[in-house]
């Protein structure tokens, strides 16, 4: 089995060969093909986001680190109502990584790029000695043309809060795989969100803010929103979409689904009068579970997120803290 060697990252022949045989093969476009020190592009008002991806296992049900590295960064760009156009990519590869696996991952990046039409315009590869990194890390930086003013600052009391789909799918899937807890039936929701955002922007839905509920899950995003916009968010627990499998998983381990990551679901805050239109649009473009889950109120007692249960009782939805571990209690 062919494996990546240190020499392939050292800037010599082997390095060039890797770039040509693998990266150019899958990422080829006129800008990248120039292979200059820097890519030169035209860009107006630009949304920029960078993220470094490390995930164990590298391949999981519903995706892999490559798909994650593309979707994750283009999603962050899309959340600022910007069309993802360009990406930089940096690979940090542990020597000994199976070449075949790397190729599968690169191919998966390439196919995820098709979803948004974004292009990789510059890249870097490092191969590091065994133990210096856990097999593979990918950094991507995304650049997108801003189409509307969409930011947490615009969240105001009276807004409706929507979620595009079931929460915690990615977090539950990775958790189960990483901890080798033999739990089957979970799939990551990893996907590019730009098509949905584009549909909303094309219909001129006046979105105030969007955020994908990645690390820290729904709980983290809602608490950040409440703090940054100095509001109180009132959420209706029973309508928050959670798949049966994720519910089962979180029951078994005693983990709160609200703190587990999504990689294909995002929150929207928008004027109440536009929420049903937005939900209709989301339903039509691949997000059939999009739903209204709460609203924004004045923060009389300071910023907070309150969950109202099916029984009408209320509780605080807190920021996640600490490691996520199963509990016996």
């Amino acid at each position: 089995m062919s494996r990546i060697q240190l020499a392939q990252g050292s800037g010599g022949r082997e390095n060039q060969q890797l770039i040509r045989d693998l990266f150019l093969k899958y990422f080829s476009n006129p800008i990248l093909a120039q292979l200059d020190d820097a890519a030169v592009v035209e860009c107006g008002t630009t949304a920029v986001s960078t993220d470094t991806f490390t995930v164990h296992p590298l391949e999981f049900a519903g995706g892999d680190i490559g798909k994650l590295a593309i979707a994750g960064t283009t999603n962050d760009v899309a959340m600022r109502a910007a069309c993802p156009e360009y990406l930089s990519v940096g690979f940090i590869i542990e020597e000994g990584l199976e070449t075949e696996l790397l190729e599968r991952i690169v191919a998966s990046m390439s196919s995820e790029l098709q979803v948004t039409g974004a292009r990789i315009i510059t890249g870097d590869t490092k191969v590091v000695p065994r133990g210096a990194v856990d097999r593979l890390m990918i950094n991507t930086t995304g650049f997108g043309a801003v189409r509307a003013d969409c930011s947490v600052k615009r969240i105001v009391p009276g807004d409706h809060i929507l979620i595009s789909g079931p929460i915690a799918e990615h977090g539950a899937c990775i958790y189960a795989a990483r901890e080798e807890i033999a739990i089957a039936g979970l799939t990551s929701d990893c996907q590019s969100l730009w098509p949905a955002v584009k549909a909303l922007l094309d219909h001129e839905v006046p979105i105030h803010a969007m955020r994908d509920a990645t690390r820290g899950g729904l709980a983290a995003v809602l608490n950040e929103w409440a703090e940054q916009s100095s509001t109180r968010l009132m959420m209706t627990e029973e309508v928050i979409p959670i798949s049966e499998a994720v519910r089962g998983f979180t029951e078994i381990l005693g983990i709160d689904p609200y703190i587990l990551a999504c990689e294909g679901a995002f929150l929207l805050s928008l004027p109440a009068e536009n929420s049903s239109e937005a939900i209709d649009i989301l339903h039509r473009c691949g997000h059939p579970d999009a739903v209204l889950i709460g609203q924004v109120e004045n923060a009389d007692n300071g910023p907070q997120v309150i969950l109202t249960s099916a029984y009408g009782t209320q509780r605080l939805l807190d920021f996640p803290y600490g490691e996520i571990l199963p509990r016996i209690c």
Binding site: S309, Y311, T313, Q314, R315, C329
Partner: peptide
Amino acid sequence: TYAIVKYGLDQL
């Protein structure tokens, strides 16, 4: 305790 507080049963 966890269930009571989580579901807010005491509030009922």
